[in-house]
Amino acid sequence: MRDDPVVVDLVLRAREGDAAAWDAIVERYAPLVWGVCGRYRVTGSDADDVAGGVWLRLVERLDTLHEPAALPGWLVRTTQRQCLQLLRARKRQVPVDAPEPGARGEEDGVDGEILVAERRHALRTAFAELPARCRELLSMLFAEPPASYAEISAALGVPVGAIGPSRGRCLDRLRRSRALAALQPA
């Protein structure tokens, strides 16, 4: 959702010097920047350096960003470039599956990154609004490795036979949430 009014509002407020709005931008898009770094196998303090450079650039670009809604795309492209620069400076190999900025189909790659990031942001928002029982249950189910029904039964004090139906009800609640419903195809 590139025209997300929340993002536009945050950018406008940050332009006015609102540090809380800036913090919210960083918190919201740190997973996006982190995810791009991961696809270039840039991790640890290298990832901190790349992200630091990306955010420092954004601070300067805030006023000239023509479309605040274009922020996610700008973040993806800038992070890709910074990762490549770092890898080349270190003479390290660029992972074969990492997107090459400027290559054909770049926009597909960028749009894909943004689409996934927005979907996951919506999923997190919807998940945070679920009742605590649902959050506990789903957390145990999507853990790596997932908890067994016996473990869940012991931890949450529910019969094993009730776990499957509860799982379905919690996921349905997730689908019906406002954040996720916006993503549902019409």
């Binding site: 990832a47 979907r119 957390s139």
Partner: peptide
């Protein structure tokens, strides 16, 4: 989605400090 949001604190801190 939930795991991806668990980015290191230092990563977020550097971003906030840039302001």
């Amino acid at each position: 989605a939930v795991r991806e949001a668990r980015v290191p604190e230092s990563f977020v801190r550097a971003g906030k400090a840039a302001f």
